[in-house]
Design a protein around this nucleic acid. Sequence first.
DNA 1: CTGAAAGCGCTAACAT
DNA 2: ATGTTAGCGCTTTCAG
Lengths: 337, 337
Amino acid sequence: MSSSLKDVAARAGVSARTVSNVVNGSARVAPETRRRVQEAIDELGYRPNLAARSLRAGRTGIIGLAIPELHSPYFAELAGLLVDEARRRSWTVVIDQTRGGAEAERRLLTGDGGRVMDGLIISPWALPAEDITAAARPLPVVLLGERSPHGLADRVAVDNVAAADEATAHLLSLGRRRVAAIGLQPHLRNGTAELRAEGYRAALRRAGIAPRPAWERPVTALHRSDGARAMAELLDAGAEPDAVFAFSDELALGALHTAHERGLRVPQDVAVVGFDDIEDGRFSHPTLTTVSPDKGQIAARALQCLADRIYSPRHDLPAADLTVPHRLVVRGSSATV
Amino acid sequence: MSSSLKDVAARAGVSARTVSNVVNGSARVAPETRRRVQEAIDELGYRPNLAARSLRAGRTGIIGLAIPELHSPYFAELAGLLVDEARRRSWTVVIDQTRGGAEAERRLLTGDGGRVMDGLIISPWALPAEDITAAARPLPVVLLGERSPHGLADRVAVDNVAAADEATAHLLSLGRRRVAAIGLQPHLRNGTAELRAEGYRAALRRAGIAPRPAWERPVTALHRSDGARAMAELLDAGAEPDAVFAFSDELALGALHTAHERGLRVPQDVAVVGFDDIEDGRFSHPTLTTVSPDKGQIAARALQCLADRIYSPRHDLPAADLTVPHRLVVRGSSATV
DNA sequence: CTGAAAGCGCTAACAT
DNA sequence: ATGTTAGCGCTTTCAG
C-alpha cells in the first residue's frame, strides 16, 4: 500500500495537521518544519488520497461529460476543449458515451450506481429536455444544444434557427432554387434538428419558395454514411436539387461522397453547406462551406455555468440560457462558379 | 445535502448493515425487510457516495486515459472504444490530453495532485518509455504504441515495422519507384515513427531501391495541415514522387489536399497510402488506402492488461507485450489505373 | 505555530 | 438474519 499522511507525519516527527498544512499551503508553517515535512513526502513518495479528501469535502472535483459518441469529429473537438478548460479549473472530466440511448442518458443523470460527479455537461439526444432536468435534480446540469423547457437547467448553444437560416440564404444567394435539407430526425424528438429545419424553411419562404417535403431527407444517425445514403435517396427520388444544406459536416461530407460517385460536380451541379466546422471540411475536396460555432466559447461557458452552481451557496440561481456566436465560413463547396 | 445510508436505515427501521446488504446484494436479506429498505431508498432518492466506498475499498473504479489529443480522429475512435469497454467492466474513464508535452505526461504518471486512478492507459508522445515506467510505479500502466524498454510495463500495439513494410511494398507492387514517406519525427524520440520509417526503408531495399533522405519528410505534428505542408515541400524540392506513404491518415489526407491543389491526379500521378483507417478516409475523394489496426482489439487488450494488474494479488506479473493484428485496406488512392 | 481528535459515508468483522 | 462498531485517509475545530 502507498503511504498516508500519517506515515509522513511520523517520519517528519510532526502531527498530521502540520503535514496537511504543508500539502495544502493552508496555514503558516515554520520554514524548518516545512522543509522536514517536504523531505519526508519526497522520501515516501506520498500522494494525497483523493477519495478521502472528497469524502471530507463533499465534492469530488470530477465533472461528467455525456455525449452521443466520441467517435464523431464535432464531439471529439468539443470534448478536447472541455477537458482543457476543466484542467484549468483543476477539474477532472469523465466521459460517457450515450450512443444515442435514452436509457444511458437517464442512467447518467440519476446517478445510478452512485454519485461521483459534482456536475454534468450533457448533449442530449434521445431524452426530451423536460425529462432531463427532472431526472438530474439535484445534480447541477448544463445542456448543450437542446433547449430546456421552463428554464430548468442552464443551456449553452448557438442560435440554431438563425444559423440554419443564414446557411440556406447563402445557397439561395448563389441563385440556387431547389435547396434540399439533409438531417431531420422526426422519430427522435431531437430539438436541434427541429430548430435547424425551422431556419431552413424560414429562409426558403422569405425567398418566395415553398418548402417541399421531398426536399427534406431524414436520417437515423449523423455519420458520413447516413449523409451519403440520404443524398442517394434524394437523387433517386428525382428531386434534382441544385443545393444541399446538411445539418452537420459529417452528413455533408457523406453527401459530397455520393455526389462524386454520381458524377455530379460540386459546386457547379450541386452546392453543399454543412454545420459544425470540423477539421475534415477544411481539407476535403472540395473544401466544405459550413456554419462554424465558436466551440471554445461553448466549452468555456458551459464550465462557467457549472462552476457557478457548484460553488454557489445559493441553490436558486436562475437558469442561464447562453447563446454562443457562430459564423458562416464559405469555402469551395459553395464557391461562386 | 443528499441522504446517506444512515438516513435510509433510520427511515426503514433497520441498521446500516442491512441497507448496505440490500444495496450490494452481498448477503441474504428477508424479502419483507428488503422491500421496506428499497422503499426508503426510493423515497429518499438515496445514491451511494462513491468517495466513501472508494476510501473503504482502496480502489476508485476510475482508470485514466492519456492521449496527445482528443481532437484527432484516431485517438477519438480509440477513446470511444475504450470508454465502452471500460463501462462493460464497470470502470469509469477520465481522459487527459497531454498535447504532446513531456511535462503533462510526467504529471499524469506521478499522480501529482493526488491519486485518483486505479490504472493508466497512455499513448506516450514526448516521454521516452524508460522514463514512463520509472515515473509510474506503483501505478499499473499500459502503453499504447510505444515499446517499453526492459519489459517494465504492459504494451499493446500493431507490428509497426511489418505494417509499414506492407504499405510500402503495396506501392512498389503498383510499379511505383519514387516512393516518399511523410511523418518522421526525428526531434521527438517518437518510437512509433521510427519503427514505421524502418519498415518503409526495408521494403525499398528489398525492391533494390536505396532509401533517399530527400524522400523522407519530417513533420512537427500529425495534423492534416502538417501533411499538406510536407507534401508541398516534397514537390517543391523536386523529389517528383510517384507515391507517398504517410505515417497517419490525417497526414495522408493533408497530402491529398496539396496534390489536388497542385493539379496532380491521385492515384494516376501519385498514389497515396495512410495509416490508422479513420472514418474520413472511407469518404474522402479519392477514398484512402490505409493500414487498418484492429482498434477494438487494442481497446479490449489494454483493459484486460489493466484488469490483470489491478485485481491480481501478486505484483510481479511479467510485462505483456501484445501485438494486435492489422491489415492493408486498398482503396481509391492507390487503385490500379 | 502545532497537537489531539472528531467525523465525512461506507463496508465487513464480530456479535447476537 | 440483522445489529454494533472500527476504521479507510483526510481536513478542521478546539486546545495549547
